[in-house]
Nucleic acid binder design. Sequence first.
DNA 1: GTGTCTCTCCTTTTT
DNA 2: GGAGAGACAC
Length: 816
Amino acid sequence: MTSPPYPRRPEAAPELPGLKPGGIAARARAAMTPSAPDAAYLTGLNPEQREAVETLDGPLLVLAGAGTGKTRVLTARVAHILATGRAFPSQILVVTFTNKAAREMKERIHAMVGDQIEGMPWLGTFHSIGVRILRRHHELVGLKSGFTILDTDDQIRLLKQLLAAENIDEKRWPARLLASTIDGWKNRGLSPKDVPPGEGAVFANGKGGMLYAAYQARLKALNAVDFGDLLLEGIRLFRENPDVLAEYHRRFKYLLVDEYQDTNVAQYLWLRLLAQGSKNVCCVGDDDQSIYGWRGAEVDNILRFESDFPGAKVIRLERNYRSTGHILASAAHLIAHNEGRLGKTLFSEGEEGEHVTVTGAWDSGEEARAVGEEIEALQRAGHKLSEIAILVRASFQMREFEDRFVTLGLPYRVIGGPRFYERAEIRDALAYLRCVNSPADDLAFERIVNVPKRGIGDATVKQVHDVARAAGVPLQEAARVLTQSEELKPKVRATMRGLIEAFDRWREQSRTLSHTELAEIVLDESGYTEMWQKDRSAEAAGRLENLKELVRSMEPFENLAGFLEHISLVMDTDNGAGEDAVQVMTLHSAKGLEFDTVFLPGWEEGLFPHQRALDEQGKAGLEEERRLAYVGITRARASARIWFASNRRIHGMWNSTVPSRFLDELPDAHVRVEESRGGVGWGGSAYGGGYGGGSYGQSRFDRAEPFAASSYSTPGWQRAQGQRSREGGGSRSGFSERPGGRFDAGAAGRRGGPTVIEGTLVASSTGAPSTFRTGERVFHIKFGYGEITGIDGNKLTVQFDKAGEKRVLEAFVERV
DNA sequence: GTGTCTCTCCTTTTT
DNA sequence: GGAGAGACAC
């Protein structure tokens, strides 16, 4: 162990010593006797935290800013409820958003109360608790026992079939769009009959509502539910069966909800129904960290809390234990630009620490190189890599960092990203197992009927479908019937029969063999493993490795059904945790985490704030992006390092960018602008140069490379400058000083603004034929000299002397 | 039925 | 620069 790289401030609470299990009664007595010393879980709590822990009766809303010890309050509260003997472990409902949060909560409660945690079945995500309830009462919502939970993939395939059946052009109305539309309705607690007709008509010329209803009918027929149904059906269950609801009212004496700002309407309704029993509901949240509006989260749920639960007490936690002064001040100043917030003032009594730094890189490659160097320097100085995180806005940004780290041999770990259970080979393998487990799983059967290729193509599958529909039986059964008739060609018939018999055999074996042995047999005998063994592509080895990992991950489960249930809800695996590696993840998945050093790359208009958020959500979108920035900065304990690149490749083409407006919203006094040490550096800028003369990196602009200066005379660049100065007018504090300004305008008005990544602007505004000709010599600021070999509108194909052939926008080259 | 080529469109975040 | 869908040849 190296010494801690950063001094922990004295306020930082020491780790709570775990209470020894046993002696509940004694502890309860101790806790209830006024003169008794504090129970261990109470030590180190500040007065507000303590109040939040000890206010057990009635509704309570805890507004907890970033790093104010919110999880600590929740876990201590559970410990307190148990220690005071107010409820049994099984009478406490604790709901979190992510599996990760649930896991962490479980561990921390375990550390406080010991084995009592074993008796807490109602600690989990909204969805996992939702399934648990539905499984117990499946018959009341029209489901058979053992219903399956569809993943997104299944959902899309099902919708595609529906669209095809309705002769709807999938090009124009993609299944994916329908899926997210339906999802949106479900998030708002709307079943097909509740969807406002006008809204239902938006999709596919009025067929949206009908498709939703048809989809639900198909789900029922398949004895399946999707994610949204886990809550929606639960709500229906409670509403239609007051006796069932009453049972849960009796059961849950205390309800605790984490990350309340992220709840959507369906979750809110579900929760409200349950909370009407004991009314001892405690919600913990932070409106400034609401970053899931795009998937239906309603910050309003926080605002509604007091009216929904009359007499609710509100406690604010504002003392930050995590970050140093400069970091906290930067985050606070930034988030103050948001109008729609409850308003909290975070403070810390810690030292000022390091300034937040802002550094410009020439391009995304240099950004990655420079960050890599800084990380190596930190490593040499004794910092642990696992205390360093790179938080990106969009996952495509990760690649460049990964490439760089691979080159450097720097251990890193991508959190989130393409998830294990979403990989094609894992899904295929699971589909086989699902077919064994439940012969009626049509979607699984369809997925693997011709994987590996067996000569069963679309035409045959359609035949099977027809038989299934006519006879009202599952596909597997229909296939069996078909093989007994003369309708299939002999070869196909033999193959199909072989497959059906294999499934029968595996099902038989599943009675005697362990589920891991069974999985190995299924994968081998189906030819699936062989398919990848024969595959000579680069990923094949990794895929085989993943299959082995899949079998290994089945071990802890009792049986196949248990495993399948688990993975439908928990889409991540927890492997690789604990090793010393740089953590790379999106800002979204960083919520709730903290690190000593946080790198925040890609602060450029269009990327962050993301163009799409602005286009689709306007001002609300911008504010959510700003909250995301706030979340990012507040993840850092001691060092927050923001980066932006002047050039970034988007859709494979280089685009020049404009630094994020969020940079302008950081307070001067707490931020230091640094120069990139690597490469050509940041050769010019939007920032400062002709723009308010801000204090940022002034020296830099005075000596832009000569070629850079000339390149900045391109039309696109001047346009950006124009936009920028018209917009900014010398003010550094951003748009909030311009109330009712351009961000209230419609999406169309925003298009031409500085939010546009420059290249996009040029690309969309140049309709005229190119003034360049093939064979001309040109200069590009990144790639140097080259010769034009092809022209496509305003896109040029250039054979560069050094960089090879590239496609570039004509606005970024000039004749030589 | 399968393999291969080209074209288009896209690329935020996730239970 | 990458995935997915459609067209076309075998």
